[in-house]
Design a protein around this nucleic acid. Structure first.
Length: 250
DNA sequence: CCGACAACCTGTGAGC
DNA sequence: TGCTCACAGGTTGTCG
């Protein structure tokens, strides 16, 4: 019966058992859910550590370094920790096995309206295929990626070495993967620094953020690139300012 | 823009 | 007991 309270209850139940744990591999017994479960899920997830578990609406996201495991419980799905040698029953479609410990994360779903997908650079590349919109506007599109705004789009593109005006559909798979990881890493570093304060942001206890001191490009027009020493440039895309290094970003 | 509806699939309970 | 039917938490895409 997974409506929001059920999904959130699942998230809270899994959190203390999964965060910090490393995934060994994945067993897909039946890939026929709402969308096919990727056969190579184990290749992506094997060796990845679960950094956090988040909920977006009724979707669950297991955050890892290289991507995110998206789970939807559909109409009849359950995500439970079971003893690792418990034999699978009829509707136990996927097991996510952990490196140490005695538990396995098991997806059960009789009606198979649920979903389990791996979100990474390759997923972004597929969404971007054929699209001529600039990559910066693409990553800021809330229907594609949630939560990437103007500052962090510029910073992440710099770290991925991608020019902000490049068409989203003209970026190679390897560079999409680099960008996906760079977005996650940039957001995490900014979070650790308490966010960025340009003029008005303050945290709940009234303190300014500190990430603005770690900017590589944002609001640094004319200053020296911290990597190549060339001048940082600015431009406008869709009424928003963009900062980039023309030498480091292609 | 909206609402209606179909599609995906299995299990359960009601009614005959 | 056994069969058929309606209906069940969700999401997405199409049609009017």
């Amino acid at each position: 019966m997974p409506e929001l309270p059920e999904v959130e209850t699942t998230r809270r139940g899994l959190l203390p058992h999964l965060v910090g744990r490393t995934i060994r591999d994945v067993v897909v017994r039946n890939a026929n859910l709402r969308w096919p479960v990727p056969r190579d899920l184990g290749r992506h997830l094997g060796g990845e550590r679960v950094l956090d578990i988040r909920r977006l609406g009724k979707y669950l996201l297991l955050d890892c370094r290289k991507g995110h495991l998206l789970v939807h419980l559909g109409m009849s799905g359950r995500l439970t920790l079971v003893p690792k040698d418990l034999p699978p029953r009829k509707h136990d479609h996927v097991d996510v096995r952990l490196v140490e410990g005695s538990k396995t994360l098991r997806l059960t779903d009789p009606r198979r309206f649920g979903a389990m997908l791996w979100l990474d650079g390759e997923a972004l590349r597929r969404l971007a295929k054929g699209r001529r919109v600039a990559v910066k506007q693409f990553v800021m599109n809330g229907r594609i990626i949630t939560g990437v705004g103007n500052i962090y789009a510029s910073e992440a593109l710099f770290h991925a070495g991608i020019h902000p005006q490049r068409s989203a559909g003209r970026i190679s798979a390897a560079r999409w993967q680099r960008l996906a990881e760079s977005i996650r890493a940039t957001l995490e570093r900014a979070l650790a620094a308490g966010g960025s304060t340009l003029r008005d942001f303050a945290s709940a206890d009234g303190h300014a953020g500190r990430f603005q001191y770690e900017f590589f490009v944002y609001a640094r027009e004319g200053e020296a690139c911290r990597v190549c020493s060339g001048p940082i440039r600015a431009l406008r895309q869709g009424q928003r300012s963009t900062f980039y290094c023309p030498r480091c970003q292609r």
